[in-house]
């Protein structure tokens, strides 16, 4: 997944990530633990997460 400039850093994705693979400090970033399940995509309120189809 890719995080675009819409991200405000609200951390909503962090709380729904089952892998603990997102860090947020002003903006979210995926860590190496990301398995690409894309669950975070659903919960982003600002459409900042882009998933590869």
């Amino acid at each position: 997944m890719k995080i675009n400039d819409n991200c405000v850093g609200c951390g909503q994705c962090v709380s729904f990530c089952n892998q603990g693979a997102i860090e947020v400090k002003g903006k979210a970033t995926a860590t190496a633990a990301c398995i690409g399940c894309d669950i975070c995509f659903l919960y982003c309120p600002v459409k900042a997460i882009e998933v590869s189809v």
Partner: peptide
């Protein structure tokens, strides 16, 4: 635990 910021589209 978590640092959450709010602005623009999610203010």
């Amino acid at each position: 635990l978590l640092i959450q910021s709010y602005h623009d589209g999610w203010p």
